[in-house]
Write a protein that binds this DNA or RNA. Sequence first.
DNA 1: TGCATTTACTTTGTAATTCAAAGTGCTTTT
DNA 2: AAAAGCACTTTGAATTACAAAGTAAATGCA
Lengths: 99, 99
Amino acid sequence: MKNPITGLNKVFDNRIRLGVMSILLVNEEVNFNDLKQMLEVTDGNLATHLVNLEENGYIKVHKGFIGKKTNTTYAVTKSGEKAFTDHITALENMIKGMK
Amino acid sequence: MKNPITGLNKVFDNRIRLGVMSILLVNEEVNFNDLKQMLEVTDGNLATHLVNLEENGYIKVHKGFIGKKTNTTYAVTKSGEKAFTDHITALENMIKGMK
DNA sequence: TGCATTTACTTTGTAATTCAAAGTGCTTTT
DNA sequence: AAAAGCACTTTGAATTACAAAGTAAATGCA
């Protein structure tokens, strides 16, 4: 039997990062507050994970304005999309369970 | 949009525990050494995660002998099987991405 | 027989990660 | 103009993950 966990991406071991990615895959652009509400996490916690995802090149951050208010949006990168789908594929293979 | 990460089990945030469960779901009983080789982890690391899974009631441990040599085997419990499949279901739902 | 080695874990200590609370700077409300 | 709210960032503590060292029994070999 080959190692079932090779191919799993360490970045996605975390539920919040996983959640962010799954949201960003189906929503083109999402801002901080929406993410926070969707995932029901504290500011600091979410921010940390967003920084992590950005440092890994999986999401891109756009700091803009709506009127005079800052509006920071997040979107997946090509690389992030690939990393995520690869991870899901690895998960599926793991679940299938190869003896 | 509802929170996509509710339903994800914290115990399975970890790749090694995830791997152990996926192995034990398709193999009735597996011993320490086989798990170690399959997952390519160090003794201490694997042992820690096995204790964690046992404390959560997801696996049961059987300390037996083969001849004079100790042989400790691990198997999933009913509750572990349910927890794991529930987690997988939650993952699948998350991936499907509900807006 | 006796000493070294291997096996199968367990224990220990450190490094990394996760998270919430407090802080910052700006905007909006009263 | 002061107070409150928003959108983050920073900080610090707690938890978790991990490898290395330790232990006890069994086996190999001289």
